[in-house]
Design a binder for these strands. Sequence first.
DNA 1: TAATTTCTTCATAAATTCATTATAGCAAAT
DNA 2: ATTTGCTATAATGAATTTATGAAGAAATTA
Lengths: 225, 225
Amino acid sequence: MAHILIVDDEVNIRTVVREYAEFEGYDVTEAENGMEAVSLCHDNDYDLIIMDVMMPRLDGYSACKEIHKTKNIPVIMLSARGEEYDKLFGFEIGVDDYVVKPFSPKELMARVKVVLKRNKTAGDANQMDRYTFEGLEVDISGREVYVDGKKASMTPKEYDLLFYLVRNKNIALSRDKLLEEVWGYDFFGDDRTVDTHIKMLRNSLGEYRKFIVTLRGMGYKFEAQ
Amino acid sequence: MAHILIVDDEVNIRTVVREYAEFEGYDVTEAENGMEAVSLCHDNDYDLIIMDVMMPRLDGYSACKEIHKTKNIPVIMLSARGEEYDKLFGFEIGVDDYVVKPFSPKELMARVKVVLKRNKTAGDANQMDRYTFEGLEVDISGREVYVDGKKASMTPKEYDLLFYLVRNKNIALSRDKLLEEVWGYDFFGDDRTVDTHIKMLRNSLGEYRKFIVTLRGMGYKFEAQ
DNA sequence: TAATTTCTTCATAAATTCATTATAGCAAAT
DNA sequence: ATTTGCTATAATGAATTTATGAAGAAATTA
């Protein structure tokens, strides 16, 4: 069943939403503010976020933007009446729906249902994830890479490694982390294996090898945008 | 550009919405009640319907149900405050969004934008059921395949496999994914079964076998256009 | 039930890719 | 400037993966 993250600084709101959501059969996790939500999303996968706009530490919009940098999770915003400008703005940055406070939990649940259903069918087959960095195009769903418009042919490990790096762009990744995520938790080989594959990947990327940065004493990072 | 049908018995509302919609670049048609809307939808194709709930002759919900019997057009409902039961009910019968009267035209336009965008990506796949790739014709609804105009006779699994590949063309598909989607979740056989059927499918496709690409270490992909 | 078609598994050869090692090269610290 | 530790690269044998043909099992049809 779907896992929902509820982000609000008022414990009463969290509790009410949690109760209704759990009654509907969803798993629920709570966060007190945007900062906590971002951190939780970094380490976990949620299917939907219900988030207040006004919160201490990090507001709902900023948190939404931050989370969407790395993950594509639908968001329902809880906002006070009369924040129309924010509404227009919010749809732009990837908010899926708004519920105005004070809200009816029933209506909120109806909207949760709709948003989840919508994203289920969308994400199933045709969720395109395609990235462009200057002349480098990385089409993860199509498992294709173009260097200056020309298709690069790479080995499986090169694809897997590049896709993982791109998905986690601008995040430092240790060799251990890469081995665990790209090779699998059951791989107990040499650290240097990563180096070799980074080398081959760099060759495949030509001038765009520059996006793969060596973090001396640490690992690697895909640095772009 | 998108064509919008506005259904409301109050001419002032229709006019305001029309002006904002046309400013955004949409084509607009008006209807006075549900009956008229149903009749218009019977003869024309609209991309979105904005419809009031309360109308003489035929109310919004009934009209929505009636229209959805034959066409899959997204609907935004205009409703008065405090119609919560209706909201829950509406999501069930295929209403995409609600806007509460009195509404801000700006907000309405923001929601129009979201709903259209959502349905653009979703509706794309559902309509087309016949594909042509050079001399290869794939008629999914007719369950027929033509190679250079000549009907190819294939086994059930070959059809199912090809249709799934074509429906998800340019998307990398793992053997597990194919087994799950084409064979069913209750198939617990060998991975290599896919290979064998790919082989037979390729033979059936003759020169157009080229569209089925092997993704080493991963699976297969139908690559075309 | 028998005949026919289709499906799945298995074995093998060919092709590709991988992990490791050794060595050279580079960067930071002393 | 030298040392130390880390990274880049090339080479190679091992391992993995795919294509294919064949055969028995299963399902469908007559």
